[in-house]
């Protein structure tokens, strides 16, 4: 091997080595931080793992919102018009949170099947429906036909 080729080979090896480490670390970080999305039906069927961070989406059931009188704890039910899941959240709800509105909650499912949310997201548009729910709804319409 000529010195020039040797130099080139070293550079290429260093590049391959460096980029594989970078890609490996990135993918690892990605694996650790993705949140799977579940519908309320999937949770009711027991498809969702317990004590794992995830997102659930659904429409807030009319008349299901209960507030604590002492703290900011609030409980409500989410539905995909098939099954319902109880969600508990402590904190300030977004402006567009209201009954009948589509929202997404992030958190963990506890042992009793209650979803302990640490974040509640509502879209800044009142006609909004999370695409995940829109899809579930669409499937249902198709199935009904």
């Amino acid at each position: 091997m000529t010195p020039k080729r040797k130099k080139r080979l070293t550079i290429i090896l260093a590049l391959v080595f460096g980029s594989s480490i970078a890609i490996g670390l990135t993918l690892y970080a990605l694996e650790q931080n993705i949140n799977l999305f579940y519908s309320t039906s999937q949770i009711a069927k027991g498809e969702a793992p317990k004590n794992t961070r995830m997102r659930i989406g659904g429409m807030v059931v009319d008349g299901s919102v209960e507030r604590s009188t002492k703290s900011l704890e609030v409980a409500f039910k989410l539905t995909d018009y098939e099954t319902q899941v109880k969600v508990v959240f402590t904190g300030i709800l977004p402006d567009l949170f209201r009954e009948g509105q589509g929202i997404i909650a992030q958190g963990e499912l506890d042992a009793n099947g209650v979803f302990q949310a640490d974040e509640v997201l509502a879209k800044h548009d009142e006609n909004y429906m999370p695409p995940e729910i829109a899809e579930t709804m669409k499937k249902k319409v198709e199935a009904a036909q």
């Binding site: 670390l25 990135t26 970080a29 990605l30 650790q32 931080n33 993705i34 949140n35 799977l36 999305f37 997102r55 995940e132």
Partner: peptide, 14 residues
């Protein structure tokens, strides 16, 4: 592969 979202921890970590 299902619906997922990538959270801020990923971005902060890298």
């Amino acid at each position: 592969g299902g619906k997922i979202s990538v959270g801020p921890p990923y971005f902060n970590a890298v």
